[in-house]
Write a protein that binds this DNA or RNA. Structure first.
Ligand SMILES: [Mn+2]
Ligand SMILES: [Mn+2]
Ligand SMILES: [Mn+2]
Ligand SMILES: [Mn+2]
Lengths: 221, 221
DNA sequence: ATATTTTTTTAGTCTTGTCTAAATTTTATT
DNA sequence: AATAAAATTTAGACAAGACTAAAAAAATAT
């Protein structure tokens, strides 16, 4: 049996590993989980003992195949519950994360598969993140951060990198969400701030914002 | 903060208290929770410390007003989740309990109130048990166990006392559920077994079964 | 009223997951 | 290459929640 705490470690390691590429450090995990490095070391020994990670002292960790499958399954549950909360229970996208953190640990294969069907097999969660399928396959779509976009091209918002409540509320305030069209009018060399046309109005965004919005270029024809 | 384990104790004490009336014994709790009496004693001290129960050594426990409110809130969540699982996710009434045992501990006021609305404010769970409202009020309906029913009268099944998977499957097998009409044809003095007309067919039920079915008499006119 | 049985509590131990402080290893700097 | 700094691990402690074995209290039987 895998515990709630172990599940949280696996999920965190998965996210860090897919961002960094190489082995994940003790401190990086500690920071994400908001715990002390020594607690992380203790847990890493347990996860290695259960063959969920490969752990070399002082060298960091990587998920094993089994660890990865477990992590992806938790992420699948997290994202499906987020869809449920937004689509069926009138939650806004900045309210779902904390509840999904709890719901992702409910253990029932039937529950999650029926939920998936009930929601009509959604491909993405409310933040634009892809939902792994029953077998752990993740369908990745091409996307770039808005800060990398080119002047005079038009894009569609397909997701967010920062999905903190504060950032999402900023987007709400400016009526920006998944599917919103964004036309790049200008980019300031000095601070990389961008002038954008959104909802027929022009606005300026600093780099700390454009860095956290994922967009997809419109198909040329 | 109240822990998952504490919630389970409160819920158990509530059920025992409402069945027995008087103070609840350590052993009774231990048996329900499937733990040892010594573990129960430990927990009772903690709950008393938090003013959720009144506990007198060797004399058993009772819930305080606050303890009762907490217990009822957990029962509300449990039963609402059971309705969700049956009505929306194609669970049958013998499959829902274990999952609801997990879901009842999810902490989010908004979640449970929205779920309630999404389900159209159901009054009873799939086993015929009443769902407490937002304020902890429980609407109790008059009902008797089938074994107490009178010959030649007609009743409607409104609930079950034993909601174990085994018993519910027995009922399914004979196409008996909430709302099923039951006409009492005869009652054997010797073993109290009853001859009933259900779904246009006659059948005999032993007392151990009729003791676990709740019915309501049809209104005479 | 005494003795026996049952119930409940206490004492001491264990596991999980966390912490602080100290020791060790690795990495960066001179 | 030696030293300083940063990262990581180890050692020892603690709280929650459970357990076993023993002691104490309450209930029952003689
Ligand atoms: Mn989330
Ligand atoms: Mn998300
Ligand atoms: Mn139930
Ligand atoms: Mn029920």
């Amino acid at each position: 049996m895998i515990t709630l705490s172990e599940e949280n470690y696996l999920k965190t390691i998965y996210h860090l590993e897919s961002r960094e590429g190489n082995a994940v450090s003790t401190n990086a995990i500690a920071e994400k989980i908001e715990t002390k490095a020594s607690s992380v070391t203790d847990m890493l020994k347990k996860l290695a003992e259960k063959n969920l990670i490969t752990y070399i002292k002082y060298k960091g960790v990587n998920l094993t195949k089994e660890g990865k499958l477990t992590a992806v399954d938790i992420i699948r549950k997290h994202r499906l519950w987020e869809v449920f909360l937004v689509d069926k229970l009138n939650f806004s996208w900045d309210e779902v994360h904390d509840v999904a953190e709890q719901l992702e640990h409910i253990k029932s294969q039937k529950l999650i598969n029926e939920l998936d069907a009930f929601l009509k097999f959604p491909s993405h969660d409310p933040h634009g993140d892809p939902i792994p399928d029953k077998n752990g396959q993740i369908q990745r779509t091409a996307k770039i951060v808005l800060s990398m976009a080119q002047i005079d091209k038009t894009y569609t918002c397909v997701g967010v990198l920062d999905s903190s409540s504060e950032f999402l509320k900023y987007l709400d305030k400016h009526k920006i969400g998944i599917g919103t069209e964004i036309e790049v009018k200008d980019k300031e060399e000095f601070d990389q701030s961008m002038t954008l046309k959104i909802n027929k109005k022009e606005m300026v965004m600093s780099k700390s914002i454009t860095n956290n919005i994922y967009v997809k270029a419109h198909n040329e024809h």
